[in-house]
């Protein structure tokens, strides 16, 4: 046996969710990371703590509050209703919004660290060479912080794939809409279909290992390059 049709639907949904969330998080997380890396505002601490909350909160707690705020009485729910989108819980886009919060620190922190590591000087150099703020971002920050962006994308993607608790709270279990791989595995176990659960779980295990292997291999290579540079300088 292999993956059933339901499995493939769940895998496709999971990948669609993870890709969507990763792209959106890179777009949203970069300005946050940029601000956190460079500000000396007194709001830096509180904002950092907020961004990092999903690292320590139980997914059920996060999911509970997101469910409330996305519901008809919550601020997000009222906003989406007034825009004519209805409420988000138990929809694909509800999962996307929840995952944005849930995976945010995994994207913001690597980018923030990479931008902090660049420091002020290369940006000042580019400014004295007539590069404006956007020019500096695309020609200095992006290339010099590239390892951070790659790490952020891999971690954001992998973490979204591995989500379970928040999804159960927000999305329930609707095939093709909110039933991602982790929920599908849960269902199989609930129904005592261990062989099916083995296939999906084994697939997830392999996938996660390969992703992390790629990430650490990449970092290892980078640190060697950095060492070589350091030795010459």
């Amino acid at each position: 046996m292999g993956f059933s049709e339901a499995d493939w639907i769940a895998i496709g949904l999971t990948l669609r969710l993870a890709v969507t969330v990763t792209i959106l998080l890179l777009l949203l997380g970069t300005p946050i990371a940029w601000w956190l890396a460079r500000t000396s505002s007194r709001w830096k601490g509180p904002v950092s703590a907020l961004v990092a909350l999903p690292l320590v909160l139980p997914p059920s707690v996060l999911g509970f509050y997101l469910l409330l705020s996305m519901g008809p009485g919550g601020p997000i729910g009222q906003l989406t209703t007034s825009l004519g989108w209805g409420t988000l819980p138990f929809t694909f886009w509800g999962l996307v919004v929840a995952s944005l919060f849930y995976s945010l620190p995994f994207v913001v922190q690597p980018i923030q660290n990479a931008i902090e590591a660049i420091g002020e000087r290369p940006l000042e150099v580019a400014a004295t060479l007539r590069a404006g703020p956007w020019d500096r971002f695309f020609t200095v920050v992006l290339p010099q912080a590239r390892p951070g962006f790659i790490s952020a994308a891999i971690l954001g993607f992998a973490h979204t794939v591995g989500e379970f608790g928040v999804i159960l709270m927000i999305g329930g279990n609707i095939p093709g809409e909110t039933r991602v791989v982790s929920v599908q595995v849960y269902d199989y176990v609930e129904m005592m279909q261990y062989d099916k659960a083995h296939w999906l779980s084994g697939g997830m295990l392999l996938f996660s290992f390969v992703v992390l292997l790629a990430l650490y291999g990449f970092r290892h290579q980078r640190s060697h390059a950095a060492l070589r540079m350091g030795a010459v300088q």
């Binding site: 290369p122 004295t128 200095v140 010099q144």
Partner: peptide, 12 residues
Amino acid sequence: GYVFQESSLLNH
């Protein structure tokens, strides 16, 4: 034009 004290070449 600005020449900084230490190496300021864009290292990428």
